[in-house]
Amino acid sequence: MERIRGKAWKYGDDVNTDVIFPGKYTYTISDPQEMAQHALEDLDPGFVHKVAPGDVIVAGKNFGCGSSREQAATCLKYAGVGAIIATSFSRIFYRNAINQGLPALAVPEAAEMIQAGQTVTIDLAEGQIMAGESSFSFPPPSAFVMGIMEDGGLIPHVKRELATHKLVRPVDGGLKRGEDETR
């Protein structure tokens, strides 16, 4: 994957899915470009007007906590966000971000040190974050996760795997009690 490069947008702890993408839109907006227009609306209404492609969100602990709504990851990706660096992530958001091909990096030192407006460069494969004079390293994502992100998300990934027959056949039919010893 190419390097990610952009300006840092800094937020605090527990940035939840209701402020990233309000629940009321979950039921009315299905176009990702339109979702992007409401990204972080209840936290930072100015964000969508100023964000540039490749910009990086830098936040505290438990980023993306709350609802399972995948639109929270989708709206950030389509708003142009190149990656999110946080002290920690809520697990459902973390999965959703990977499935959307949006790198989510839990690097506490970088999350603390990087200042709003600083230019941030990220090399995923090398596990490096550069900001100003500082650099921070992190374990590069596993091959499994890199595979999903390089394909642009879980859906294109599964499509490609199905096409190349890499994926084992789907489980056929329902499991019946007593018939399956693995239950």
């Binding site: 995948e70 999965r95 959703n96 499935n99 879980l154 489980v171 056929d172």
Partner: peptide, 18 residues
């Protein structure tokens, strides 16, 4: 456990998840 739409979509179609 809860997941996003895409994760569950794949679970529905293939009967498995990671």
């Amino acid at each position: 456990t809860g997941m996003g739409s895409t994760d569950v979509a794949i679970g529905i179609a293939l009967g498995k998840t990671w």
